[in-house]
């Protein structure tokens, strides 16, 4: 069964493009990655799914029901974590979470306590005194406290420290194992790769690819910079290497394929410094469509 089904969804804000003719579906129980650069239309898509805004044309269903006509009912089973979290000024974290919990038919008290402990929340603080990261943690608890069947995350890790990110990813994995479907929007490819089974790539409002994560990983490019004085750059020109450049500060190249082949080769060279990093999404896009 498809938990989310999007058909020819288009949104214009006046003359400005939001998304164009977007169609895809999210299967039950999967973690679906939704990646694209800033301004690609990720948040627009999510807001359309939550009927915060209305489509110019096209339609979307969640659990097989139209997301506008049945919006309020559907949201009983949706947990949403926005990219920026804003709450009512002056309210205490605990009061706010209990207020949110009171809207769901399910009894959420137990889960609210568990999640707050996991996220190390101080329930007595006022929400407007919280830092960006701590507000995000409140958002995570609020988005998950009703054990939703569909979890929608919009750039969820921004503002979380690495430790908290790990806790968060573990949490999402558990929710997924429990049976929740996850729609994960991000502009960071690596975090999508850690969790997702399929990935949709969106750019300038259009879906440009929808792939199984394994395919994408096979296509995973690394950006390599090394300082190896006296080494002929030609020695690095092996299969999988593109964009080899020799500069005053060393060699840069992009690599795709079995990383062992390259590390083996580098080990045999007199290297004084080495950096290996993921290509940014923009760079991936550029390679993807060469």
């Amino acid at each position: 069964m498809n938990v989310i089904q999007v058909e020819h969804l288009t949104k214009f804000y006046g003359q400005a493009r939001g998304i164009l003719d977007l169609s895809f579906d999210v299967h039950e129980g999967e973690v679906f990655g939704f990646i694209g650069p800033n301004g690609a239309g990720k948040s627009t898509t999510i807001r359309l799914l939550l009927s915060l805004i209305y489509p110019t044309s096209g339609s979307a269903t969640i659990f097989g029901r139209d997301c506008i006509a049945h919006g309020a009912e559907l949201r009983q089973d949706i947990g949403y974590l926005p990219s920026e979290v804003f709450y009512y000024e002056g309210m205490r974290v605990g009061d706010l979470l209990h207020y949110a919990a009171s809207f769901y038919r399910r009894d959420c008290r137990q889960r609210l306590r568990e999640l707050s402990e996991l996220m190390e929340l101080d329930l007595s603080r006022r929400v407007d005194d919280l830092s960006y990261g701590n507000r995000k943690k409140v958002g995570i608890v609020q988005g998950l406290l009703h054990s939703p069947r569909l979890i929608i995350l919009d750039e969820p890790t921004a503002g979380l420290d690495p430790l908290m990110q790990r806790t968060f990813f573990d949490l999402i994995r558990q929710e997924n194992q429990r049976g929740a479907t996850v729609f994960f929007s991000s502009h960071i490819l690596s975090e999508v790769q850690r969790l997702c089974s399929r990935v949709a790539i969106i750019k300038e409002g259009r879906l440009i690819d929808l792939q199984d994560i394994r395919t994408l990983q096979r296509d995973n490019y690394k950006k390599i910079h090394l300082v190896a004085p006296g080494v002929d750059p030609e020695r690095l020109q092996v299969e999988g290497v593109t964009g080899l450049q020799a500069g005053a500060d060393g060699l840069t190249l992009n690599f795709r394929g079995d990383i062992n082949r390259l590390t083996g080769l580098i080990a045999s060279l007199p290297v004084s410094d080495l950096t290996i990093e993921d290509l940014s999404l923009e760079e991936i896009f550029m390679h993807y469509y060469q």
Binding site: F86, F103, Y104
Partner: peptide
């Protein structure tokens, strides 16, 4: 204005209510 709409209106409540 305070951008809480994204919280309030993603609760299971209709806009009419």
């Amino acid at each position: 204005r305070e951008r809480t709409a994204e919280f309030t209106l993603t609760l299971p409540v209709t806009r009419g209510r």
